[in-house]
Amino acid sequence: MNWTLEVVPVPVTDLDRAKEFYAEKVGFKVDLDSEVAPGVRIIQLTPPGSRCSVVMMSGMPGAPASGGMAPGSLQGVQLCVTDIEAAHAQLVARGVEVTPVRHLGETGWADGKGGEWNSFLSFTDPDGNGWTVQEAPTELSER
């Protein structure tokens, strides 16, 4: 049986600001923006090439306004790309503040690309939710 991760909730304070950030600056596709019931709004966005989406919501149990995760408390979610330098350039061009591309070296973090699976950058959304982007090989072996 396969177990797939399909949706990650992102706690935010302002749904419209978050939607604009993830869609226009990070480049996620808006799959849904709907008031599904009175006072219940769901926004779902998907990174290009991914089956896993992010969701932001209001008016539902678990949503920030309903006592769920605090905005900015999501940390360490990782996206993978096959070209970290192109991803960095794209985010910078769209106005996202990102770290330089870095890798783990013999004495800790060092600037520039590393070897396979060892190139990273990070950014935060307007609420402080933290994301890491890792370069992955274009050809993945079976896990």
Rank of each mutant, 00 (worst) to 15 (best):
L32V: 12
L32D: 10
L32Q: 15
L32P: 02
D33K: 02
D33I: 00
S34P: 01
E35I: 02
E35T: 08
V36S: 02
V36D: 06
A37G: 03
A37R: 12
A37P: 03
P38W: 00
P38Q: 11
P38N: 12
P38F: 00
P38V: 07
P38R: 08
G39F: 04
G39W: 06
G39D: 09
V40W: 02
V40G: 00
V40P: 00
V40Q: 15
R41P: 09
R41G: 11
I42D: 00
I42G: 05
I42Y: 12
I42R: 08
I43L: 05
I43G: 00
Q44K: 10
Q44C: 12
P47W: 10
P47L: 08
P48C: 04
P48L: 02
P48H: 05
G49R: 05
S50P: 03
S50H: 13
R51W: 03
R51M: 08
C52V: 14
S53E: 04
S53T: 14
S53M: 06
S53P: 12
V54I: 15
V54Q: 01
V54G: 03
V54N: 01
V55L: 13
V55W: 01
V55D: 08
V55G: 07
V55R: 14
V55P: 00
M57T: 09
S58D: 05
S58I: 13
S58R: 14
S58T: 14
S58N: 09
G59A: 05
G59P: 01
M60W: 07
M60Y: 06
M60R: 10
M60V: 14
P61N: 10
P61Q: 13
G62S: 06
P64L: 01
P64W: 02
P64F: 02
P64I: 03
A65E: 10
A65M: 05
A65C: 15
S66Q: 15
S66T: 13
G67R: 08
G67M: 09
G68H: 00
G68W: 01
G68R: 00
M69S: 15
M69P: 04
A70C: 08
A70K: 14
A70M: 15
A70E: 14
P71M: 02
G72W: 04
G72Q: 01
L74C: 04
Q75C: 04
Q75T: 13
Q75E: 05
Q75G: 02
G76H: 09
V77Q: 12
V77P: 05
Q78L: 13
Q78M: 15
Q78W: 05
Q78T: 14
L79N: 07
L79S: 06
C80N: 07
C80Q: 11
V81P: 02
V81F: 03
V81G: 03
V81T: 13
T82I: 11
T82R: 14
T82A: 09
T82P: 09
D83T: 07
D83C: 13
D83P: 07
I84V: 11
I84H: 01
I84F: 00
E85S: 05
E85N: 12
E85Y: 07
A86E: 13
A86G: 09
A86M: 11
A86K: 14
A87L: 04
H88E: 08
A89I: 04
Q90D: 10
Q90I: 06
Q90V: 10
Q90E: 10
L91C: 06
V92C: 11
